[in-house]
Design a protein around this nucleic acid. Sequence first.
DNA 1: GCAGTCAATGCGATTGATTCTCAATTGCTA
DNA 2: TAGCAATTGAGAATCAATCGCATTGACTGC
Lengths: 147, 147
Amino acid sequence: MSLEMFESFLEEHCLKATRQRRSVYAEILAMDEHFDVDSLLLRLKQNGQRISKATIYRTLQLLMECGLLRRVQLAPDGMDAMYAACPEGCAIDNLVCTTCGKTVQFSKEGVCNLCEDIATKYGFALSSHCLNIFAVCPECQKKQGDE
Amino acid sequence: MSLEMFESFLEEHCLKATRQRRSVYAEILAMDEHFDVDSLLLRLKQNGQRISKATIYRTLQLLMECGLLRRVQLAPDGMDAMYAACPEGCAIDNLVCTTCGKTVQFSKEGVCNLCEDIATKYGFALSSHCLNIFAVCPECQKKQGDE
DNA sequence: GCAGTCAATGCGATTGATTCTCAATTGCTA
DNA sequence: TAGCAATTGAGAATCAATCGCATTGACTGC
């Protein structure tokens, strides 16, 4: 569905819908997970696509400009650049295990309402939000208990 | 108050409470705002401190390990590394203007409760969270209206 | 208070992610 | 299908962050 959004964004801004741009976004949608630039490049190559890293960076930039992609911070000290496709409404909420790094994307309408309330309280006009919850997943809790 | 927390963390881990480590954290507390490495270095130099950038990075790393500091992402495509001191409970909630970059740190107990609920639902043990709300501040709304 | 020890610092070099440059390629329009 | 302008690819350049090592300085026992 949002491949069309990307294409209409390109059209509106007089940008070309090239093979590379399409395949980058298609691959992102196919992954259905957060990713870094190297793993995206690897997957594209494995699928037989010819594409350079520079083009990937340029396309990611475009996708962020049109709100279809976001950088996400998957650790409190997160140095690594990770990206994730934005679902409808452009909110990304992650539950991240601080031990093994496993992440769960969830959505809960309560979060949006809360953000709306807070923005309104300070006179801001809500655009989007990003919530990361850092916690220990059940498997890691069990492992820690065993020691 | 939390300068002592830092010092006891250092003691517990057999690390030395050096002049540089103290002054970095003191400066962070004095700033009471998010910051990047360069502005922190500048302020320390202006205060007459002799300190190198490498030491600042090493100290920030330590502060993050003991939970007194966090990286924050102040834009949906946030490329720049910004840091902020963690208040009690180690939650950082920001309301960020997507137009001018102004940020408001707020705290609302509802957010913590919601995170607790979500973590529990997935069987995770809550550690901390980080919520960024991207919105347009009142001033920028007004400016946009004027055009 | 003083000397000795070893962690911490500072500096310069290095790494690695991201961006830039520019010639070659490729979408799109007529 | 030709022509133009935008886009791409490859490698160079940039810049934040890290590393290595000689020097400095915080803590211990005397």
